[in-house]
């Protein structure tokens, strides 16, 4: 599956680049098919790996819990003062803006913790609810988290700091998971709310 997924992502990235170039060539025209600005859509959605994690309410969740709605999945941690809250605030802002125009419920924000030692369900509950209602946060043993991240080529690595604490290096990508629980598209950073507001209605209506 890994090889298939990697090839799919590469093809999607090439297609996105081609679309961008075509749109650029047509910038002087009046009629243009709607195309995502930054999202890379996979040619074929890929079923997510099986996983079993604990959500911010303490409930056990597996892949099926992502089904039934669109999800924006970000991998981060609560002790990250800069890029993680900035990304979550960006997604939250986009959701609020989309709520007024989007057909249906805007995609749910899903935070998958890459710092299970510090990110308990209780901590995650306080944190994720700050970024809006209906969001989901997942944590669990590191091995369980890696069952989800590694097949998706999502990286994270704990790094000790001189002050005795540690930080976690991690992929900054946001994955769009469709209502069938499949990896459908990805947003690479830097993340901008306007890009999500532009792209999500296009990408989620193309199924």
């Amino acid at each position: 599956m890994n090889r298939t997924l990697l090839i799919a992502i590469l093809i999607a990235a090439l297609a996105a680049g081609t679309l961008l170039a075509l749109n650029g060539d047509r910038s002087g025209g009046t009629a243009m098919a709607a195309a995502p600005r930054v999202a890379t859509v996979l040619p074929e959605p890929q079923t997510l790996p099986e996983f079993s994690l604990t959500d911010h309410t303490g409930a056990e969740r597996d892949r099926s819990f992502l089904e039934g709605q669109w999800n924006l999945v970000f991998f981060g941690f609560t002790h990250c003062p800069d890029i993680c809250p900035t990304t979550l605030a960006t997604l939250s802002s986009a959701r609020k803006e989309l709520a007024e125009s989007y057909a249906g419920t805007p995609p749910r924000i899903v935070l998958v913790s890459v710092d299970p030692e510090r990110d308990t369900p209780e901590k995650l509950a306080e944190y994720i609810n700050y970024f809006g209602e209906g969001n989901l946060a997942l944590t669990g043993p590191e091995a369980s988290i890696r069952e989800l991240t590694e097949p998706l080529f999502v990286y994270f690595n704990r790094v000790p700091l001189e002050n005795g604490s540690y930080t976690v290096d991690h992929s900054s990508v946001v994955l769009l998971v469709d209502p069938e629980g499949r990896f459908h598209a990805l947003f690479s950073g830097p993340h901008n709310a306007a890009d999500y507001v532009h792209d999500l209605p296009i990408v989620t209506s193309q199924t």
Binding site: D82, L161, D169, S172, P190
Partner: peptide, 17 residues
Amino acid sequence: VELHETTTVDGVSRMRP
């Protein structure tokens, strides 16, 4: 208060003092 820098290279974000 610490002085920090976040860098993102090849899609991976790293924060360091």
